[in-house]
Design a protein around this nucleic acid. Structure first.
Lengths: 213, 213
DNA sequence: CCTTCTATGGAACATAGTATTCCATAGAAG
DNA sequence: CTTCTATGGAATACTATGTTCCATAGAAGG
């Protein structure tokens, strides 16, 4: 008989109740499904309720806002992304990690295009960055030529840009090719610059462009 | 007497009427001001009307939605950004162009932090990318090792990441330092990869990390 | 000046989406 | 079989967007 403080019991659902678990899973599934067709700001809570076949009022017993559910879904996706790549990152095999990552997002291109572009990208970026920082273990070296955190920021940013570009191609490059681009053009320069100031590499000069004023 | 089709005249204001010009400028000024304190989705049209001292209904005679004004303001800022940097880009002096760019955004850090982060960043990115593509004159070379468009995407993306990071520091690096990072870690690798496939640069190996399962 | 045109501001109104309250029901658990 | 509580639905409130109508004031031309 746990009726002692029944007042607050009505506000949020118990996370372990099988009914609540079902509702939650249905909400997550619905959000992922809807994200395949549009950006989160174009999705209403009523859409989610309808798609999940969960009552509109029930939604608020699980998440206070639309953003809360969206962030939870993104967190799950990021977690499973790290699950698949962390072992290889820890083994210093960046190339394999990148390949696994590109293969993973290609399993649901429409979902990931939504997450990687538009307003959703800032949430994804934030969570990816948090995870990447934890992995990199940003030790502060403010005296380094390039602050180490910048490396993480540039790698995560470059990854997002490259993924979004790649998924949107009509004839996407093979995974090995795009992985090569990522490792050589994004990761390697950032790592190299973190470890030691690069020589003053000259940019290739071409003939100046004449442009109308 | 141009009263022939007076019916449609009520919908939108004439762009050349001095009163309309004043209203428009007030709206742009207000939007820029408000963007210094919050993201566009946190700004209501009533906020803009109040800040600009333009009537709420009048707003809609100039822009159909909040996004339309926001995009127009971003377009203006991007245009003035290109004005200040294009000459140096055309002269192949990327370093000076970057310096001018970093100096420009530092004139109003709060505005640019808003534009470079959160949901606003996707609009900024889109417009910057459009401009950069026009400058780069993306000639399609689908057989190149790295498609040229990827270079533009990575450079613009890296620029946005780096600017956002830089502006948010409590003690920002000097402009010359951050410019160096941009040119050497972002621009040079992208240009080099576009011109010729880079050698299979080895990533520096470190001792593998032990992590709890 | 005087007249005409039209941008403006405000009131009233319609709509959509979020969020809460109350209640009856049905499923979970002992 | 009984108790607890998650659910779904109706009613309600609120906020923001967007439109319509009208009176006013500023611009422009004679």
């Amino acid at each position: 008989m746990m009726l002692w403080f029944a007042a607050m019991q009505d506000r949020f659902a118990n996370a372990n109740d099988p009914r609540a678990v079902r509702s939650r899973e249905a909400l997550h599934r619905a959000m992922r499904k809807l994200l395949e067709s549009r950006q989160p700001e174009q999705i209403t809570i009523r859409d989610i309720a309808a798609e999940s076949e969960v009552g509109y009022t029930t939604y608020f017993r699980h998440y206070p806002t639309k953003e809360a559910l969206f962030e939870a879904v993104v967190a799950e996706l990021i977690a499973s992304l790290f699950e698949r790549t962390l072992p290889m990152v820890d083994a210093q095999d960046i190339s394999s990690a990148a390949k696994a990552l590109f293969a993973y997002v290609r399993e649901n291109p429409r979902l990931w295009i939504t997450l990687l572009t538009g307003g959703a990208a800032s949430t994804l970026r934030e969570q990816l960055l948090r995870g990447a920082r934890a992995v990199a273990g940003t030790r502060s070296q403010p005296d380094a030529w390039m602050p180490p955190d910048v490396g993480v920021v540039l790698i995560v940013g470059g990854l997002i840009e490259l993924l979004a570009w790649w998924l949107q191609q009509k004839n996407p490059l093979p995974i090995d090719r795009v992985t090569d681009i990522f490792v050589r053009v994004v990761v390697a320069p950032a790592i190299a610059a973190r470890d030691a100031p690069p020589a003053a590499a000259e940019l290739p000069k071409r003939k100046p462009v004449r442009r109308k004023a």
